[in-house]
Nucleic acid binder design. Structure first.
Lengths: 217, 217
DNA sequence: AAATCAAATAGGTAAATTACCTAAATGAAT
DNA sequence: ATTCATTTAGGTAATTTACCTATTTGATTT
């Protein structure tokens, strides 16, 4: 069996070290590089050719989903395993769409990480939760995603703009001024958004924006 | 040198496994137990007697600060090392006040974790950032803290109640009804809070509540 | 080409909500 | 005894939102 070459991406050094320590015990796995953010990762990918990139879902400069999408475009043969703190189904589907080969919660045991790595190297797709192959087939091979269409698949560009501004604390009038539209239009956008997402208040919108990383906390 | 017995506490199994893998390579360190939450930890502490508890700052049922405070009260000889995702100075001071012996960001390298463990076992206090011994002396030995007085040291009980409700999406009238006070009183509380914290809008209050874990996202 | 539909745009008015002024009661601290 | 923070509110003006309807535009379908 060939040695599986891996690049680890996570902004928390201790977490990287932990994973590295687990993987270093494996004969057939070699962590050839580490990166703390997407910038470092893509720098290293210009000279190094790993079999797999294991990345955290949230990095300082890019989300794991965006990274997956970019890797999938630039280096389609590199497998991508995404690690996440939370089991957000929305993110899981976005990850699939972005071309990730696996999505794991950090709640898993190290044995499952190893199993996931080997499954993915054997051409499988690995998720902690059972997602039917049909769904997978529907989502894979689609066009590439960017941050806007990933988690916020239901919202239009304009609506996302509005959600962001709401999340940043601007009131309708201020948003109207910023976007050079009428207050009523902002009002209408907010109504549409809340209806689409099943939200009830501006505070819900703010939380949605935070959850979906449209704004920073 | 005696073997240092450690209990690891973190709700993410993979992270625990990673740390365990790092520590297992050390001769003088033994991870005798693991716990995913505070409940499990205190259950195990009834039968096990570690030298040190290493805990994440945020757990499902309790904060690391609260855990430190409780351990300090029940088992004052057990050393406490808190791991955190963020370098929030407010939390660092709260941790000190709660009796923690060290506070580390997850950004550190594994070597620094080992250094911190040994420092703490030798009676020192270990922090990634330089905090002067004077501050440490001022804060240590003080009374024990609970969640309310830790991160929200400037806010009164009533104000925290209000911030929580604002964060949960209730408007002033609803908050007034819930607390059985006048809308004006809620209004006044909000004004005071915003002035104290230097915030400008209800949205800022929501973010404050999330940041300081007064509400869940 | 015509019809249909989603998306983005607003106006008007009533209703809801907040902002800001002041101020009193209470209890703790100096 | 006095000062001070905390909690409590009333009144009014100003702001802000909610909800109704409705037009334009571009894309898709028939």
């Amino acid at each position: 069996m060939e040695v599986i070459k891996i690049i680890l991406v996570d902004d928390h050094t201790l977490f990287r070290d932990g994973i590295k320590s687990i993987l270093d015990d494996e004969e057939h796995i070699s962590v050839i590089e580490e990166a703390a953010d997407a910038q470092m990762l893509f720098d290293k990918l210009q000279n190094q050719h790993p079999d797999m990139v294991i990345t955290d879902i949230s990095l300082p400069d890019m989300t794991g989903i965006e990274i997956a999408s970019k890797i999938n475009k630039l280096y389609p043969d590199i497998k991508i395993l995404i690690l996440s703190m939370h089991n957000n189904e929305e993110f899981i589907l976005s990850a699939l769409k972005a071309g990730a080969n696996g999505y794991l919660s950090k709640d898993i045991e190290s044995a499952e990480l190893l199993e996931a790595i080997h499954s993915v190297m054997n051409g499988k797709i690995y998720f902690n939760k059972e997602i039917s192959q049909t769904i997978i087939n529907n989502y894979r091979g689609g066009d590439h995603v960017d941050s806007k269409s990933s988690a916020n698949i239901n919202l239009t560009d304009r609506e996302i703009e509005v959600v962001k501004l709401v999340g940043e604390g601007f009131i309708n009038k201020e948003i109207a001024d910023k976007l050079c539209i009428s207050i009523r239009t902002v009002d209408a956008h907010k109504s549409h958004i809340m209806q689409k997402l099943g939200l009830k208040s501006t505070v819900d919108l703010v939380k949605y924006a935070i959850k979906n990383k449209l704004i920073d906390l």
